[in-house]
Design a protein around this nucleic acid. Structure first.
Lengths: 122, 122, 122, 122
DNA sequence: GTGGTCTAGACCACC
DNA sequence: GTGGTCTAGACCACA
């Protein structure tokens, strides 16, 4: 998964989101060790401090925990990961609904459109 | 509706999108005369040339037309406006579906989630 | 109130504790503006980034909020301040009890000693 | 009991405190023979000279005495041990009261809080 | 080698 | 001027 960092929002926030996605998608499986801060920073072409800040944020959220000398690990608490997935999904949904209503669709129309679209894509 | 222009994408593109939304939402009703380029540019705090470029783009799309002497008008072709609305909506939908699938939801789950969310919001 | 920073624990933690005490004691009254990050950093003879980190921590706790251009302010939520005071007190108490029990005092003895000490000090 | 020596205060002082605690808690019972300086130094991972300095300090306090040929012994004077315990306790109490008053509690409030806490812990 | 902290110095958006 | 972010480079404790 490429890092694709843009300059319009704080980099560390984008790092957090990217890693969250990685955890949710299973690219970083529960309980597994993350690469070292320095390696991840190098990968993402950012300063180690910036990556550190992002990981500290994830640690505060409980998605990740660190063992001082041996590295950082993904939480093994799959419920917690599910909660994060749900909250991200909810965020997407509300944002999407807001945009669609700006376009003049009411909620039942949106549902109908979605159903049609989903069928066509199958 | 405030203009809220950011520096991370070309300004004229953001102007186009903003005006499209205005037309779709009815803020600029079909057949009505638009303010002068100068006034719109002043409103949006952009250079008149930039606004001109945006309006030229909208003209190419057929959403506005100009009468040499009396100014620029919104198209009266409501089907055209609807088409634009539909295409913007489709864009939103596919983008939304892509993000949700990244989160690990399949299409039928997404529909279920949306229905639940829409009910709760009522 | 002098800053008295020691090297045995992270400086930013000591800054957090010091400012918390200042808020609780009323040295920084609810709703008041804090000095700028740079000024506080200068006062405490630390790098502005370190002070920033401390203040970010306090902000996460809700004791402080920032307004982008005008500065940082103490929360006006006195209940929140009281909660923090109580939790700090509880921390002191349990730590104290632990130490006293290491010395071989049981809880009722400790209470008696304390009562005697308090009377003598009056 | 592990030695847990930190670098922020003189080592020999920490050794004195640690051994005092051992005597008070009964880990080193009155009248018993202490291990040799060499052994204790090895245990604590410090230089024998440093341990020697700590034991000399304890000897000055009267808590241990040495018999030239057979080694060092804990005092059999239980009153003396009690006095030391009391003075350490007093130290803890005054320090604790000072901290609590910094948090804005007066002495009677502290007593009340302590009583409540002690009850809850039982 | 690991995470963590700290400093110095720079730049940005906002008003 | 304000808070906020980022980089570069250094140092520490731990095992």
């Amino acid at each position: 998964m490429a890092w694709e960092l843009k300059t319009d929002r704080p980099i560390y926030i984008q790092l957090v989101e990217h890693i969250k996605l990685g955890i949710i998608s299973g690219a970083y499986p529960p309980g597994e060790r993350l690469p070292s801060v320095r390696d991840m920073a190098f990968d993402a072409s950012v300063n180690p401090n910036t990556m550190q800040k992002a990981l500290a944020e994830l640690e505060r959220d409980g998605l990740v925990f660190s063992q001082r000398t041996s590295g950082r690990f993904i939480t093994e608490d799959k419920d917690m990961i599910d909660k994060v997935r749900n909250s991200l999904a909810l965020e997407q949904i509300t944002e999407f609904l807001k945009k669609m209503e700006k376009l003049g669709y009411n909620k039942s129309e949106i549902i109908k459109l979605m159903e049609r679209e989903v069928k066509e894509l199958n």
